[in-house]
Nucleic acid binder design. Structure first.
Lengths: 140, 140
DNA sequence: CTCTCTGCAAAGCATTTGCACATTG
DNA sequence: CAATGTGCAAATGCTTTGCAGAGAG
């Protein structure tokens, strides 16, 4: 991804810190702020967690990054992709992106029926992944 | 709802506090722990917030109560009903329950394809509700 | 009399914020 | 130099927990 994209037409400056955060997220995965911090640190040793949070917020504002929050854990950040939903393992909490089919229609229909505007949706499917199922068997 | 239902076959005692929490939630709505606390207090003036949280956790464990967590706000609790999803206003954060149609199928299909078991799902549709849309117009 | 439950206050975790200094355009 | 960004540490909001006493079986 062109790290400059999205920055130029904005009031935000493209600093080393911001570029590094974006680069880490471009590496893929669903990372917590803490995890982003750890990775960016290998390059910018003195960057603070506060800056990570501030940066993630800005990248969100620019539409370059998406957040996923769930119960009992830190929010996970990923670079913005096509609209998708998440498949999450209830044990290891690993996240998988899944393409949406039909969900947008259901969401839109409901929203219209209730007079809601500026509609967005989020679907999360939770279950035990293959790896964790096997681990459970081995341990039993 | 019979407040005793669910308690008897369990290791939990039915105390005044627990009955009161359940009664408040049966009153309907999607309440934060803080809101439950405020309402229960009118009856049991010295009940603590800690007890509210502990009780909500137990009621969840018994399947009598469901939680809904979202970004940037306290979790909301409601008595367990048929599987449904939530329509949330992005401004006033009011929650509406909506019956599910087709979502379970999509979720199940995806989960099976990826080998996930013990599957559950949650769909949240977010938008601006009628009330908030009107308010926005009046203020403009 | 033992086990469970409660209130209280302290701790915990994720996130945000105030401030003084550094960096940038 | 004026505006923006940063590190640090303290503050915040929600939730959990340790403990000592109260209540239930």
């Amino acid at each position: 991804m062109d790290v400059n994209a999205g920055f130029l037409p904005s009031r935000y400056r493209l600093t080393r810190q911001r570029a590094a955060v974006l680069r880490v997220l471009d590496g893929g995965g669903h990372l917590s702020a803490e995890a982003v911090h750890a990775r960016v640190r290998s390059e910018l040793t003195s960057i603070s967690l506060g800056t990570i949070y501030r940066t993630l917020e800005i990248l969100r504002d620019l539409g370059l990054v998406q957040v996923f929050s769930f119960e009992g854990g830190a929010a996970r950040y990923e670079t913005a992709l096509d609209k998708h939903f998440h498949l999450m393992c209830s044990q290891c909490r690993e996240l998988l992106n899944v393409q949406a089919g039909g969900v947008a229609e259901i969401a839109g229909e409901i929203a219209t029926r209730h007079g809601y505007s500026d509609v967005d949706w989020s679907l999360t499917v939770v279950g035990r992944c293959l790896g964790c199922s096997e681990k459970a068997l081995t341990e039993a």
